[in-house]
Design a binder for these strands. Structure first.
Lengths: 204, 204
DNA sequence: GGAATTAATAAACAGTGTTCATTATATTTG
DNA sequence: CAAATATAATGAACACTGTTTATTAATTCC
């Protein structure tokens, strides 16, 4: 009875089509400017069809986030090449800046916009970011364990590094600070300097 | 000819009514959940009337932001009591956390949401935050000038302190990190610890 | 082949920001 | 004071939004 399986496969394929179209359009125009109708147009189905595969826009965004976080985790893996823990941390943080600049709209929907965190069950872990977050946490923890950075609590260390980078990125993305000059990787020079300075400061 | 002046006064009063209603509703329900129609209902005018006083929702938000930033600047002044530059900096940063927790929705519309930064002219200075930002900058700069913190560039120092605090606050507000335990001032304990640790770390 | 199930849709609902022609109110002028 | 003019306020509409539902088309099962 291969019909059930074929149906499931087709259902999965349809979800793929929807998510792929959504990602493309979110990257190009930003989450808020893309409507369900736009996505439906792009995949050449009616808007109501999307609701047969996703209960609402938040649930669709959740899948898009999963994809985006996978992209970030891969981005990390591609850029963390060193053996030295401190250097690895530096590579990770700088590639985080890099990612945010290359995929501004993805960064936005991963870390800044409200949706879909409301619909994520309260006590449930937010699993999407796990892979990327683990890489940060493990790297930072290794530095703490080896006494390379001025932290005692690995969790506080991890969140601090993240918060510092995210603070700069999000203020910049939302135009609360305006940094004119970009370096060769399109990262605002002052931001790179500030992050570099932070990493230098936390070193023992 | 006092009529012209009275008219101007009435126009100003109407704008006040609109802004006041908007702030109340934004604080209570958040920017995105409050519509022009809701505001019009509250002040007992038709929605179209609001457009006689504000060209669009962004322009209204700009005035609301101005109010909110004044509140923040006052909040700073009320909490910065010490004479010691380092202690002043600490008071400022902690009262920043305090403000964000007390007025979550205001913090949101001041620092996180996209609007109305699109409509603010590109080269024009973003004047709303000037007063509050100056207080931070002056305090940080004083610390740099006196060699009390491990920075050489006052601007990088200022933005770093701000970014660190904002990073934590915004990740927390957007549920990307979940910090359960609150202290007596309703500030997540781990956040306060991390910020305190940061301030300790940048001390010479 | 006919009945039952599944998939897709058109149309509608309730909401949004915003505009515009129309009405009501003040003010200025003859 | 009355008529003409300028101002203020509005109801209704436009073009959207996310979402639901009754209806139609296609597929699977017996």
């Amino acid at each position: 009875m291969g019909i059930t399986e074929r149906k499931e496969r087709e259902k999965a394929e349809m979800r793929r089509r929807i998510v792929d179209a959504a990602i493309d359009m979110f990257v190009a125009e930003g989450y808020e400017k893309v409507s369900i109708r736009n996505i439906a147009d792009k995949i050449e189905y009616s808007p109501a069809t999307i609701y047969l595969y996703y209960k609402d826009k938040d649930e669709l965004l959740y899948d898009v986030q999963a994809e985006a976080f996978q992209k970030l985790a891969d981005h990390f893996r591609a850029h963390i090449t060193s053996d030295d823990p401190l250097e690895r941390l530096q590579q990770l943080v700088m590639s985080y800046l890099d990612f945010a600049r290359e995929y501004e709209e993805l960064y936005d929907l991963m870390f800044i916009i409200k949706a879909p965190m409301n619909s994520v069950e309260n006590d449930a872990e937010w699993e999407n970011g796990q892979d990327a977050f683990s890489q940060l946490r493990d790297n930072v923890s290794a530095c703490v364990a080896k006494g390379l950075i001025r932290f005692t609590d690995p969790m506080i260390a991890t969140l601090s590094v993240w918060a510092f980078a995210h603070g700069f990125l999000s203020l910049n993305l939302r135009c609360r600070i305006k940094i004119a000059e970009l370096d060769e990787a399109n990262i605002p020079i002052m931001m790179r300097n500030a992050v570099q300075h932070y990493l230098d400061t936390i070193k023992v």
